[in-house]
């Protein structure tokens, strides 16, 4: 019973947090489209709205590829100037976010290619500071356990290829569907599945070595 109570408590905290972190909401989809249409018909302020809305998510995504803020800025500038120039030929889109991500990714990867930098992708480099927690009841999971779980995940992510890390990021952070990820990364849906499968397998293989640790951790779980 206590456990159930705690879970429901978590729900509340999570829902509050999810508003802060997510830059786009399903409810915004229609809104997005209206702005997109206005932009396509030549309204510059609509483009600025799109810029305002997607600056942080796109920058965040770009940051996973490169730690060079100026390069990402250049890519963003390139993207939005191109959007404006091509506004008459840009088609209506199912998802403005996916369109922007895909275009941005292409621009950025080309820039990296020009600089002859390797395609890389980092996940989990931004770790909430001491004040920022995951947002659930600390009584449920100890600080040490959280650290160890995170350590496991980080180590397993290390073992993955950049492409696999990108898919993990798109799936769990951006909350994209397989089809969306496939379209964004210009892969087939089946090869996206395969990449996820391999990524998960990497995790599993890594974890089998630390199973004992987990067992120990389980026993140390605090229960009220």
């Amino acid at each position: 019973m206590v456990f159930i109570f705690l879970l429901s408590l978590k729900c509340k905290t999570f829902s509050a947090i999810s508003h802060l972190n997510q830059q786009y909401q399903p409810g915004r989809m229609q809104d997005d489209k209206d702005i997109w249409d206005a932009f396509r018909s030549g309204d510059e302020s609509s483009l600025q709205m799109i810029f305002d809305r997607y600056y942080t998510p796109l920058f965040n995504y770009g940051h996973k590829f490169s730690a060079d803020d100026h390069l990402i800025e250049d890519a963003l500038q390139d993207l939005f100037v191109k959007l404006w120039k091509n506004r008459k030929t840009i088609k209506d889109t199912e998802s403005v976010r996916n369109y922007l991500y895909k275009s941005f990714r292409r621009v950025l990867l080309r820039m990296l290619e020009v600089q002859q930098r390797k395609y890389s992708f980092t996940v989990l480099d931004e770790w909430p500071g001491p004040g920022q927690e995951l947002g659930y009841d600390q009584t449920l999971i100890s600080r040490e356990r959280l650290e160890s779980i995170r350590g496991n995940l980080l180590a397993a992510l290390e073992k993955m290829t950049p492409r696999q890390r990108e898919i993990i990021h798109l799936r769990y952070y951006e909350e994209m569907e397989y089809e969306e990820i496939a379209a964004l990364m210009q892969l087939s849906v089946s090869s996206t599945y395969k990449l996820v499968y391999k990524a998960i397998d990497t995790l599993r293989q890594y974890l089998s070595k630390t199973d004992l640790l987990i067992l120990l951790a389980v026993t140390s779980l605090k229960k009220i």
Partner: peptide, 18 residues
């Protein structure tokens, strides 16, 4: 619990502020 934590860790990454 661990899977949930992973998902949350990945999902709740604070957005990067340049």
């Amino acid at each position: 619990e661990e899977a949930r934590t992973w998902i949350l860790l990945l999902n709740r990454q604070p957005a990067y502020h340049p």
